[in-house]
Structures are given as C-alpha cells and as structure tokens.
C-alpha cells in the first residue's frame, strides 16, 4: 500500500554525467519496498503552484536503515530540481508503487539482468534480493560512455558477475548491451536462463525479441509518462496483447511476451 510522506534528504551523491543518487529518510517506504517498485517524488515547494507541477517516477534503487535511495538522471526541469536538492531539504514522496518483479521465475536458473543507462536503478534491489536467496546473478550493463556506467561496483559487491558495454568501447565491449547478451547466449543454454531487463525502449524491444525467440522467461520494467503513479490518471498506458495496461499499477514490470512494441 502506498504512503504519501514528507521525506528528508540525507545524502545527494554526484555520480557524474548528470547522475545523482539521492537518499531519503522514509521509514514505511523503506520497509515495504520490493524489487521493481518505484516512487513518485518532487521537492517540497513553498510555491502554491510548483514548477513543474507533476512528480517524477523514480525506481527505488536501494532500501535499508529506514532509508530509500533513488537514481536521478537530469533530463528536464523536474529531474533538475530533484538533483539540486541539498541534505536536510524535504521531498513529497508517494510509494512504494507498482507491481514489482517476480523473483520466483528464476529459481535455480541463472538470472540475467540486462540494464541500459538509468535502467540500472530498477535492477539493484532485484540483484540484492536474488543474491540473498543464493541465486546466480549476471549483470549486463550498457552505457553510452564509460562514465555513464554508474554504480556498477555496488553490483560486484553483491557477488554479481558484471559485463559492461559502451558505444565507443572505452569500457567493456564496444556496442549495445544486446550484443553482450548475444555473447552470453553462446555460453548459457536458453533452458538455464531467466531474464530481467530495464532500459530505453529500443533496448527492451530487442531484449524481448531475443528472449521470446529463445523461449527464455523475461520480465521487463517499462517507463511511461505518468501524472499520478497510482492508477487514476490513466496516462501511462502500455500496449499489451490483451489490452492497454497501466505502467503504474499493472506494471511497471510486464512479461516481455505480453508487450506489443511500437516499431
């Protein structure tokens, strides 16, 4: 059940390339958040009409010690306002929101996490929980440049085998993360794998295509513009085989095989 809280910022870590890891004190959200959940957040404002008006949807990167952290990449005004917050300031946060990942799907299999850019934020709690359960986890993480590959050490600390890709080859393999996935598929049989993916839509589309063609179970966490985050604005529709579904309440995690991707 989501909570609406005023949360104090405890830490704002500049990770470079316009990425910031913000930690808030949020007791209830921290206690209830599960892998794949997200929050809607905006800095507390003294303005009657804040600009921008709407909160921003952010994956919960980590939980613990009554805190949650979120990864903010500055894209526009909303993310810029969040990223410029100082410790001690407060934000209005609604969460935890969304359905979360199904962790049972990969029981006894190798769990392949495929992340592109800030999509990394959605799979960190997932990696932590899977490792806690003693599952094998591999991370394939793609970024434009080496500096975009933020927070990868957090995964290595969890005992996750991490492979990275960059557009220029400055770190890891040159090319898209899907190229790294193709490489891994030469090592692991389809039957031994379970996949999770989060990243830009073209990446999710390609990952889904690969997973579905090989019959590998694959869950994807999608992004969509949304106004509320809790199922009433109906703005964040996702096209699935059955019908339109909402990214906020039916998702953000869907089976790759359910989604009808735009070409």
């Amino acid at each position: 059940m989501p909570h609406l809280v005023g949360a104090t910022l405890l830490d704002n870590r500049d990770l470079g390339r316009n990425n910031f890891l913000l930690s808030f004190e949020a007791v209830q959200i921290s206690a209830e958040a599960r892998p794949g959940h997200f929050v809607m957040a905006a800095p507390e404002s003294r303005q009657v009409v804040p600009s921008p008006l709407l909160k921003r949807a952010l994956a919960i990167y980590s939980t613990g010690d009554s805190q949650i952290s979120v990864l903010v990449k500055v894209i526009g005004e909303g993310t810029a306002r969040l990223a410029s917050m100082n410790p001690g300031q407060r934000a209005d946060i609604i969460g935890p929101l969304g359905n979360g990942f199904d962790l049972e799907a990969g029981k006894g299999r190798v769990n392949m996490l495929v992340a592109g850019g800030v999509g990394i934020a959605s799979v960190h709690l997932l990696a932590r929980e899977l490792r806690r359960r003693g599952e094998d986890v591999i991370l394939l993480y793609g970024g434009r440049t080496a500096a975009d590959l933020v927070l990868q050490d957090d995964f290595r600390e969890l005992g996750v085998l991490a492979f990275v890709t960059t557009d220029d080859g400055a770190a890891g393999v040159r090319g898209f993360v899907t190229a790294a996935l193709q490489e891994q598929l030469k090592v692991y049989s389809s039957e031994s794998l379970n996949m999770y993916a989060c990243g830009p839509e073209p990446m999710l589309r390609e990952v889904s295509r690969i997973a579905c063609s090989r019959g590998i179970p694959c869950q994807v966490s999608v992004e969509a513009r949304m106004a509320c985050g809790f199922g009433v604005c109906l703005g964040c529709s996702v096209r699935t085989r059955a019908s339109y579904r909402l990214a906020c309440t039916h998702g953000p995690v869907f089976q790759a095989s359910e989604i009808v991707w735009d070409e």
């Binding site: 600009s51 008006l53 709407l54 969509a224 513009r225 703005g235 964040c236 529709s237 339109y244 735009d262």
Partner: peptide, 17 residues
C-alpha cells in the same frame, strides 16, 4: 480501452491529456 500510449504531457502550470 482508451487511446494508444502517449496520453499525457506536462505543460506550463498544467498538463494535456
């Protein structure tokens, strides 16, 4: 069922839906 995705966008002091 409603319209295809791309249903909302934030605008100055408001939103289009």
């Amino acid at each position: 069922a409603g319209n295809p995705p791309g249903r909302i966008v934030e605008t100055p002091a408001g939103m289009l839906n």
